[in-house]
Write a protein that binds this DNA or RNA. Structure first.
Lengths: 338, 338
DNA sequence: TTGTACGCGTTATCAC
DNA sequence: GTGATAACGCGTACAA
């Protein structure tokens, strides 16, 4: 069934393969009205579908880009992916998605597989622990864009949230409403996780600027699962925080779990703000004030950059794109406190 | 850089392309220890990467499957996709993801594109409005699996929730706790959307079995956006429902929006249950009782079926796989009411 | 305007 | 054991 080839069409239309090829590539000027019609009919009759593989072999381009993410289940990933896919479809490209599960070994394997499949570009949500692999790519000027995290020492386009600003936004808003004992809640801090560190740094800087203390006890780092317990302990100590800044949606879940279990009232006893605009933010009680990432714009940009790199064979210098977060003011923070 | 080909390796190792090919396909018996070593070295030295495209052209198989979903942003989609990807990676396959946005035209285009790219199989979350396309596929015995929705009249493997059972589960649980005025909340009912109809049917059947009335006013169908308003009106009428059964996560959001805005207390004034285990179910107050779909198992099965179809060239008869939902008992329903 | 011949990188089939 | 040589399906000079 699928064995209909150009040759078959040519034969039926009484022309040569090359003419059919011309037709397929819309170079109609090179043929008579007559033959054009015959070819069209032949194609229709046979239900001919060009074999993209054969074309790729010749042209060394597959109209496919590879995306490797470190966690497919993250909402951010889903949304960015969605935008990437949309942007690619517009250009007739398709997307191969791979999930590294944050495992550098897997990530490396997938890069190789994707390369072997001759993808025209790569968008990676990097584990961050494969410098050599990334570098090999950039050295060859292979179209590459990092998303969400960036890799120090690797010169590639990177699409990132303006993490410092996001943290600052949180602190500023909280402080402006009169909160002074603000704690940051984060997954364990690891140096290679740039955004995490940037958010912490932004937090520190903003607190300093506002003349607020950052006590050690108010940097709460724990795995999401352990978080409720850790928070419980912290709240048993003196000088409880009166505001919690969750660094992402996962830690937010830990925070919410805690306030629910411990019966801590929001925002009366503690205010909550977080990065990532979770879908249930405004049906939650109280509605959650959040700092949203422009996920769609980020995905779109990522795709655009790959295409630009594909076009411009010369490297126009890797760039870092910082996207501004948006404060979604709701009610998990009391206004004008004090 | 990437132009290292088999010929280069062959030259460097002083053998012919065929021998290199043998080596690559691990047919070591056919060569001396000696040459084998030389080839290995040559490959290493040149950093040779086989060109999968060329191989595909010859073998007519791409180790790639295509997935077309109707809404990439749905959580169900994400989770099923994740399982599919994992299952494919195990077998060295990769996944091209396309989003139809529930637009039949787009869906059709993507099927064609994917076919042109010679994918070895297709997993589709179907719009349901492309019967001819689907049928063309099954007629050619092309490996095809439907997920989430099924298409009447098209004989293909389908991975589905046991929708009747899910609805029954909701009604049974609600009834067993003493609720009698149960309303079903759903997006607009359209005939080609099989799961939606099945859930409604299951609801009706279960109510009948329990001897409960289904008043017209208690079948609440509206677009998610309009839902809060529609519910508000319904609750202004006499004989309010004392329990709401949301058919999926989207309508659940509408329901929650409504109870929040209208200040209706859950579960005191109205109980809530829904299909789809939303991530915030147990940090919500009250914790949401839900009926979870085994998304991971469903995705895994979908992938497995494609592979089985690929293997067994003869059609072993299309099958429908019904997955049993799980009741996640939480607190949005009062126990032992009355 | 249309046809011929060759190349793309592999694999398969035979000889040697 | 190893090596020519012919496919695979399409694009493209170049010739006609």
């Amino acid at each position: 069934m699928k064995k209909v080839t150009m040759a078959d069409v040519a034969k039926l239309a009484n022309v040569s393969k090359s003419t059919v090829s011309q037709y397929l590539n819309k170079r109609y000027e090179y043929m008579s009205e007559e033959t054009r019609k015959r070819i069209a009919e032949a194609i229709e009759e046979l239900g001919y579908q060009p074999n993209v593989i054969a074309r790729s072999l010749k042209q060394k381009t597959t109209a496919t880009i590879g995306v490797i993410v470190f966690n497919m289940l993250h909402m951010l990933t889903t949304q960015v992916l969605h935008a990437i896919e949309e942007e690619c479809q517009k250009r007739g490209f398709q997307v191969i998605v791979s999930n590294s599960g944050d495992d550098p070994e897997k990530e490396k394997r997938y890069v190789d597989m994707l390369l072997a499949k001759q993808v025209d570009g790569l968008i990676i949500f990097p584990t961050g622990k494969n410098e050599e692999v990334y570098r090999r790519l950039t050295a060859e000027r292979f179209p590459l864009v990092f998303v969400d995290r960036m890799v120090p020492g690797v010169e590639a386009d990177s699409i990132l949230l303006d993490n410092q600003k996001a943290a600052e936004m949180a602190v500023d808003y909280l402080a402006s409403q009169g909160y002074d004992r603000i704690a940051i809640v984060t997954p364990p801090l690891v140096a290679h996780n740039v955004p995490r560190m940037e958010r912490l740094e932004g937090f520190r800087a903003a607190m300093r600027k506002r003349g607020l203390d950052v006590e050690d006890g108010n940097i709460i780092a724990a795995d999401p699962d352990a978080l409720p317990e850790v928070l419980k302990q912290r709240f048993a100590e003196p000088k409880r925080p009166n505001a919690l800044f969750a660094i992402n949606d996962l830690t937010l879940m830990g925070v919410l779990r805690f306030v629910k279990d411990a019966g801590v009232r929001v925002p009366d006893e503690v205010a909550i703000i977080n990065i990532d605009d979770v879908p249930f933010a405004d049906i939650y009680t109280p509605a959650l004030t959040t700092i949203a990432q422009p996920t769609f714009a980020m995905g779109k940009k990522a795709a655009e950059r790959v295409f630009e790199q594909m076009k411009a064979k010369k490297a126009d210098g890797p760039r870092v794109f910082r996207f501004s977060p948006t404060l979604m003011e709701r009610t998990s923070i009391k206004r004008e406190k004090k």
